[in-house]
Amino acid sequence: MRSHEPETAPPENVSPAPEPRLPALARAWDSDLAHAFRSSPVAMLSALIALTMIGAAVLAPLIAPQNPFNPAELNLMEGMTRPGQANEFTGRSFLFGSDPQGRDMLSAVLYGARVSLLVGAASVAFSAVFGVVLGLMAGYLGGRVEAIIMRIADIQLSFPAILIALLIFGVARGVIPPAQQEDATLILLILAIGLSNWAQYARTVRGSTLIEKGKEYVQAARVIRRPAFVIMLRHILPNVMGPVTVIATINLALAIIEEATLSFLGVGMPPTQPSLGTLIRVGQQFLFSGEWWILFFPALMLVLLALAINLIGDWLRDALNPRLK
């Protein structure tokens, strides 16, 4: 049946497809998404902040004034220098101040952000892959597979993610011999945070898969008896990635905070390889003795990073949702 809309929405044939074949970059620049981005100051500012911070964190070994974890570069005499003031013994000044070991806080924050981002990105990738695969299977195969996957997801979603991560992390720590624990912490943390977040992807992807599965292009593939995994991966997956991108972006901010929380609680990254959370835990011991900068700068970095990424995620969700336009 034809549908003729009574409203005055522009008819379907107004959104033009560029006739000349533009280079990929020019096409991307001209796309609706790029245009929505350019007309949203919040999105642009957030992207600028996030990209600067991510860039600085990734390039930390190149741009940081010192390697904060190389004891040879630390000078105890320079401990507890206030931000921006010259040290009374060596005359060196630290933009973000220094900690009791004479560690430059700017370098510590950059290296810490690096660890935080690594854990965040890796755990998001892990939970996205895991959740998308399970969601595709639940939506496409249906029946018992769907019932089992979705009930587990329901149960997991009824507990806070941090609790799940603590549980997984705790169990893993109990299994792994103590000698290897320090090295394994990073991997364990990624797995724990990743496993605590898959259910949201699975739920969303299952819903989108159910919609796509009913569309005729999927039936066309079934008519020529394409195997189920080919239909799921090649046909349906590319069409359900929009919402996954949105969740992944917002989840990146959440995963960074989750990691910081775990590290703050002392079950995350060790002080020898600190993340922003570890730095905050260490820093809060000095807060009441007046050395505020040891806490303040890692916390500021965490807040800005999480906020910027979250705002990008929010914007992306609105921009990809045609109904909100």
Binding site: E216, Y217, Q219, A220, H235, N239
Partner: peptide, 11 residues
């Protein structure tokens, strides 16, 4: 098979 809706039948 040829389907009804050419907007849904092509990926």
């Amino acid at each position: 098979m040829i389907f009804q809706d050419p907007y849904a039948s092509l990926n």
